[in-house]
């Protein structure tokens, strides 16, 4: 059976006023991480029970459902957990240079951290590849203090 679409009807607008919200977000792990980055260090939180190391650190363990607050430092080297090569921008237009975004499992951490990989042709990036962080010259305590990662 063929379905015939009826005539077009007009549109009216509505909004969802997201700007009226005041979202409260746990900031402890992010502050711990950013403070450490000022010293070119990376810190997270470890669960005392299952020994999982989270970076950035949450205030409770996902698996054990207990409060956690043991600060640990992890290395700025690690391996590529997975990656993607950005070839179009948010609007779908091709980008001039491909950018390698990766999820990196830092040595000593059980979670992944996002970052950009440079200094290698994107065709040669592999999962499991060793990388190290390249720090900004004058870290300010921001996520951008790790400028990028490069092959170790």
């Amino acid at each position: 059976m063929a379905f015939e679409m009826g005539p077009e009807t007009r549109q009216v607008q509505g909004t969802w006023d997201v700007t009226t919200y005041r979202y409260k977000i746990e900031g402890k792990g992010m502050k711990l991480l950013c403070d450490a980055m000022k010293e070119k260090k990376i810190r997270g939180i470890r669960c005392n029970e299952c020994r999982t190391v989270y970076v950035p650190g949450p205030t409770f363990c996902r698996k054990c459902h207990i409060d956690i607050d043991e600060v640990v430092e992890v290395k700025d080297t690690g391996e590529v957990g997975t990656f993607a090569v950005l070839m179009a921008d948010m609007r779908g237009n091709p980008v001039d240079t491909e950018r390698v975004s990766a999820q990196i499992k830092l040595d000593g951490a059980d979670t992944w951290l996002g970052g950009t990989i440079e200094g290698i042709d994107w065709h040669d990036v592999k999962i499991g590849m060793r990388v190290k962080a390249v720090w900004a010259d004058n870290p300010e305590g921001k996520l951008s203090d790790i400028d990028h990662f490069e092959p170790a």
Binding site: T15, D17, T19, K24, I25
Partner: peptide, 12 residues
Amino acid sequence: IVVTAVVPLDYT
């Protein structure tokens, strides 16, 4: 440490 975030866009 509680961070308050305000999102600078509304959805139409």
